[in-house]
Amino acid sequence: MRNDFDITASRQRCMGYRRRILEISQQVQALHAAGAFSCLEMVDVIYNGLMRGPGSGNSPDTFVMSKGHGCMAQYVILEELGVLERRDLDLYCKPEGRLGCHPDYGVPGIEASTGSLGHGMGLAIGMAYAERFVHKNDGGVFTVLSDGELQEGSTWECMMMAANLGVDNLVALLDHNGMQSFGNTAETHPKFYPIREKLEAFNWETAEVNGHDADAVYNAVVSRKGGKPFMLIGNTVKGRGVSYMEHGAIWHYRSPNPEEYKQALAELVEICS
């Protein structure tokens, strides 16, 4: 693990990523901006803090965006790392382009196809197992899940298996924004909570932090005890960074109109926590 994580640089990067995502939003009617904004700091920590040599093409570590609809967060980072070209993002969801609303395996920097919820955990476990027990190297596997994915039975099947297999090189970051299409999860599915106790009952090591506090995210991951698969519950706000997107279900998918775009740019500030 690297230990030179620069929180100031991370805040500046995330500000730039949000700006870039908003810019792209003006080319398309929909792009899942709010879900990308809620996991942005965590994805930044993974690429720019936890992975070794991201974008080099031969990183020993792997990232799977299990919540595939959050892939704008991944695309803008891959662009900055030089893995994707500016043109790729400019052609997002356009016939001549190669980037869609969900990440596709085969696109540079995309290690697995996702989009349907509840698939990333199995993929990540298989990868982690192969690195740890078959290839016998120190490759880490990082994945970002949505909280909605914890309602998929497949995710729990796989989490139980992860502990059985002893994949302690697996680090999952849960984008817990608490919001789903039908409203707040706490109201629509109150027994979804508590999360952490359920994970620990499945023999995962866990931690819980503010998912927009990149420093806290980074430190929670690097200071984990190890010996078990690890899940960080990152408490986040869907649409974080743009006031009218925060907590608004419509922004799960919709792009802002030109007026809203201007307002969003005007109010973007560095998110400190």
Binding site: L123, I125, M161
Partner: peptide
Amino acid sequence: ERFINCGVAEQSMIGIAAGLALKG
């Protein structure tokens, strides 16, 4: 190390197999 019994959990069997295949 090349044999995994996933238990009565077929979704995990296929998903984990895919992850293994993605690693060669």
